[in-house]
């Protein structure tokens, strides 16, 4: 693998399904990214930021717990780029998050990498 699209990017994955989270981690690390956190629940953002910057966050919308939107708002407030990766339609997004980066499951590796690269790029 010589893909270095996300070389040096510090990325957080919020995904409640263990297998998909592992899958994502593997493909992002293969693209040169450093996955600094992988969690099925909303992580402590402040603690993570103390360890270093966050270039992008990949968020699975989990309506079952309904917390991911608040987490996204928190990220938005801290100007941390993020991309939703979800089985739901974009119509599920609340109005204030409507313009956010968005990928529909199942997404292939190329699209995930491109979306995260784009998000972190535009934030810089």
């Amino acid at each position: 693998m010589t893909d270095r699209t996300l070389s040096g990017h510090r990325i957080v994955i919020l995904e409640d399904d263990y297998y998909q989270a592992q899958d994502c981690r593997q493909l992002l690390e293969a693209a040169g990214a450093k996955v600094i956190a992988i969690s099925a629940t909303v992580p402590d953002l402040s603690a993570l930021l103390e360890e270093g910057r966050i270039d992008a966050v990949l968020i699975d919308i989990n309506l079952g717990h309904g917390l991911s939107f608040d987490f996204a708002r928190d990220l938005k407030a801290r100007a941390i780029p993020f991309v939703f990766l979800t089985g739901y339609d974009a119509a599920m997004l609340p109005d204030d998050l409507a313009g956010s980066g968005y990928l529909t499951k199942p997404a292939d590796a190329a699209r995930i990498k491109a979306a995260l690269a784009h998000a972190s790029q535009s934030a810089r």
Partner: peptide, 24 residues
């Protein structure tokens, strides 16, 4: 409305999961 959304979510999630399980 929720049911349809959930169904979509589940189907897509399942496919994602199957793909991950297959790979793993």
């Amino acid at each position: 409305r929720l049911l349809v959304a959930e169904l979509q979510h589940r189907v897509r999630n399942l496919i994602g999961m199957v793909r991950s399980v297959a790979r793993l």
